[in-house]
Design a protein around this nucleic acid. Structure first.
Lengths: 242, 242
DNA sequence: TAGCACCTATAACGGCGCTATATGAAGTGG
DNA sequence: CCACTTCATATAGCGCCGTTATAGGTGCTA
C-alpha cells in the first residue's frame, strides 16, 4: 500500500484548482492554468483525476465536506426550530463565503450530477427535521419540509450571491427563513419571544415594522423623529450583537 | 433603411442557437454547431452578434420577452393575493417548459450580467405587489416582498428542474408558495386586526415589536435610546381610531 | 457607370481539453 | 547487482473551440 503519505502533486492540483475557481469570477478555468499553477504537466492531471470534470468534482467534494462538517458542528439544542434557523443561516453563510463553489454545488444543476450535493444536503436537513417532528413541531412530513426549506434556502443564497457585497442585506434571508419555517412548523408555544440570546423574534418584528413604515408614514412622529426611529429600528434588525 | 424585411441569416442564427441550447442537456453548444445548423459561416455570427455571448444574450432576451409576455398576460383580478399565486405558478411553468433557458436566465448568475433578467423580473413582481399593498394586504414593503417571493420561486423552480420529470411533484411549489405568501401578505380579510383603511400593518408590527422587546432587550440601543424608542413605538401603535 | 454600404465567405491563429508515447523513480526477486 | 514490474511524471501533438484579418459579392445612390 501507499502508506508513505506524500501525494504532493495531486494535492497541489486540488489546491490550485480550488484557488483558481474561487478567484475566477464566474469565468471558466482552463486545465493549463491549473497545471501551471500546480507546477505540473497536463498528463499528471489526467492520471490522477481522469478528467477536468473529475478534478472539479474532487474540488466540489472537498467543499461539500466542509459544508457538511459545518452543518454537523451545529449541536442539537433542545429547540428544533431554533436549530433549523441555525442550519439555514449556516447554509447562507457558506454560500457567501464560497460563492463560486456554491454556484457549482447548488446553481449548476445538471440533471443527474446532482445527487452528490443537493440530495445529500436534503437528506441531512431531513434528519434535522425528524428531530423537530419527534418534538411534534412539524405540520408536514420531514421529507416535504426539507425540500421546501432547502429550495427556499438555495434561492435566497443564490440571490444574495448575485448581489454586490454592499447592497447585500440579510433581511431577505431572515424574512424568507421565517416564512418557510412558520409554514412548516409551529414555533414553540404561543410566547413568540425566545429565551435564548439570539432573540430573532425581536429582529423579525423590527423588520416587519420597518417594512410597514416604508409604505405608510405615520403622522404620530415628526420627520426628524421618524428618521432617528428608523435608524434605531435598522440597528435592532441588523443582527443582534454577539 | 432596411425596410425590405429579409434578415434571414440573423434570424436563422437565433433560431438555431435557441434550438441547440434547448436540446443540449446542459452541455455547451459550439459556434460551429450553430453556424452549421443555420447554414452560415462563422464571420456572419460575429458580424451580427459580435460574440458568442452576444448571440446567447439575444436568445435569452427572446426567452425573457416570452416570459414577460406570459406574466403580463395574467390579468389583474380583484384579488391581489390570488394574482400572486398565478404569477408564481407561471414562473415555475416557464422554468419547466424551458429548463435550459431558465438555467441561463436564473441559475447562472454572474455578478453583473444579472440585471437584464432577475432584476427585471423582480421589478415586475414588485409592481404586482404594489397593487397588493394598495389593497392593504402587504405586511412588508413591495420591494422586500418581491425579493423574498422571487428568491423562493427561483429556488423551487431550480429544484424542480433538477428532478426527473416523473419524480417531479408540484406539491413543493404549492407548499413553498403558500408559505412565502402568507408570511408576506394577509390573505383576504380573515385577519380581524386588519381593517381595510388606515395603516394597520404598521400598528400590528409595532405591537409585535413592542411585545418582543418587553422580554428581551437588545444591546444595540443604549438605555436612554431604548426608552425613547419604546415611547415612539407606543405612540405609533396607539394611533387614535380613524 | 462608379462608388458605397452592407453582408457573407475563405482561411487561419492561438488556446482549449485531452492523449499516445516515452522517461524516470521505487520497490522486489533472482 | 541486475532484470522486472509498477506507479508517476514529462514530451509532443491531435482535433476542436472562439475569434478575426482579409477579401468578395450584392444592391442602392449619384
Amino acid at each position: 500500500m501507499k502508506s508513505t503519505g506524500d501525494p504532493a502533486p495531486k494535492l497541489r492540483l486540488l489546491r490550485a484548482a480550488a484557488a483558481l475557481l474561487a478567484e475566477s469570477d464566474g469565468a471558466s478555468v482552463s486545465t493549463r492554468q491549473i497545471t501551471e499553477a500546480a507546477k505540473v504537466t497536463a498528463p499528471t492531471l489526467y492520471h490522477h483525476f481522469g478528467d477536468k470534470e473529475g478534478l472539479f468534482d474532487a474540488v466540489v467534494a472537498e467543499g461539500f465536506a466542509e459544508y457538511l462538517a459545518a452543518e454537523r458542528s451545529i449541536p442539537a439544542s433542545g429547540q428544533p426550530i431554533e436549530d433549523l434557523r441555525r442550519h439555514w443561516d449556516n447554509h447562507v453563510q457558506f454560500g457567501l463565503d464560497h460563492p463560486q463553489l456554491y454556484l457549482v454545488m447548488f446553481g449548476n444543476i445538471r440533471p443527474e450530477r446532482r445527487p452528490s450535493t443537493v440530495a445529500t444536503a436534503e437528506a441531512f436537513l431531513e434528519e434535522v427535521l425528524r428531530r423537530a417532528a419527534a418534538a411534534s413541531r412539524l405540520v408536514v412530513t420531514p421529507h416535504e419540509a426539507a425540500r421546501s426549506i432547502l429550495a427556499a434556502n438555495i434561492g435566497v443564497t443564490l440571490m444574495l450571491i448575485s448581489e454586490t457585497a454592499e447592497k447585500r442585506s440579510l433581511e431577505l434571508s431572515v424574512m424568507t427563513r421565517e416564512a418557510v419555517l412558520s409554514a412548516v412548523a409551529t414555533d414553540s408555544e404561543a410566547d413568540p419571544v425566545t429565551d435564548t440570546e439570539g432573540t430573532p423574534a425581536v429582529v423579525v418584528a423590527a423588520i416587519a415594522l420597518n417594512a410597514a413604515l416604508q409604505s405608510s408614514h405615520p403622522d404620530q412622529l415628526s420627520g426628524p423623529e421618524l428618521k432617528l426611529f428608523l435608524e434605531w429600528l435598522h440597528r435592532i434588525s441588523s443582527r443582534s450583537g454577539s
